[in-house]
Simulated scan of single mutants.
Amino acid sequence: MSVSRSPLSADRGLLYLLLSAASWGTAGAAAALLFGSSGLGPVALTFWRSAGGTALLLLLRLLRRRPAGPTRALDLAVNGTGLTLFQIAYFEAVHATGLAVGTVVTLGAAPVLVALGAGLLLRERLGGAGAVAVLGALGGLAVLILGGTGAGTTVRVPGVLWALLSAAGYACITLYGRATAARPGPRPDALTTTLHSFLIGSVLLLPFALAEGLWPSQHHLGRTLVVLLYLAAVPTVLGYALYFAGVTAVRATTAAVIALIEPVSATVLAVTLFGERLAPATLAGAALLLLSVTALAVAETRQAAAVRARRSPHRPCRPAR
């Protein structure tokens, strides 16, 4: 993940994003474990995740002993603020409406927002199939919100709104990361970007975490510390370092679509570990949303292949006669 003159290959970028999304899928489950026993609210939990990630990244920086690469104040502000919004709104959504619904809405809405933003800001064409997929995803969200409840699961409008706000934060850092990849000259490595983003997030969150209640309760303190360490190390340090590296190598919509691995894994954890159940209408809305975004991924893949074919310098040669 060091600064390089040659850009990251698309295949490696896709692998990084795949691993990143898989690690993120466990963050909501870790938060759900802590909400019931640690005494921490969503804001304090997000602060400790950011602060713990910052400490681990500083340690890695000292061990690595490599130059950090250039940084810009605007990059730090956008990534730090967007990442903080993404995290805190997601934990608020999980706290308000449950792990399954909160995750599905967040990661289902994110590709839609990214696709629309990529078309408007980055001139990435969505195409007719992509537009139909976006409309289908919006319809799926509507069904999901109005779908009622299942055993152990309640779809609450405030939680859904928090999830949509989280998706907006994710779309912001995805689109900005893709836009900065087109800039000429060297870029900071993924470790540096992640470190600065979480440092800014920790500073922004500290006063709000103090107001909510910063310190965990003594009850099950050992388990709380273990889960917080896992939350800082795996879905934070590892997940976001891989994300910031991979997002520069693929189209913005593709990056958002790959993140759908997260709601799949998080929903499985919600059902198997926490006993959450989705009502038939809610399940239908989630299925429509995910199928629509899958169609968006297919359209995106075909679009990218067509662009590569047009840009290829090689042309088939006709045999001499």
Rank of each mutant, 00 (worst) to 15 (best):
A233R: 07
H219A: 15
E276C: 13
G239M: 00
V264E: 13
T194K: 02
L76W: 00
A100T: 12
L135S: 05
A89S: 14
V132I: 11
T174E: 04
V298H: 14
V250W: 01
H314T: 09
T253V: 03
S37W: 15
L8R: 00
G213Y: 06
P235K: 02
F47C: 00
A131L: 11
G53W: 13
L40Y: 12
H219R: 13
V250N: 00
R311E: 01
L99W: 07
G117F: 14
A73S: 08
A241I: 10
A73T: 08
A256W: 02
A182R: 13
L146Y: 00
T46G: 06
E212Q: 12
A233M: 08
W48S: 06
A142V: 11
G213C: 08
L113T: 10
V143A: 11
Q87S: 08
H95Q: 14
A77F: 13
P280A: 01
R277L: 09
S265P: 03
L225Q: 10
V250F: 01
S166G: 13
H196F: 01
A182V: 06
F274W: 10
Q218M: 11
P280G: 01
R49P: 02
A168F: 10
E124G: 03
Y240E: 01
A118V: 04
L165W: 06
G127E: 07
P280L: 02
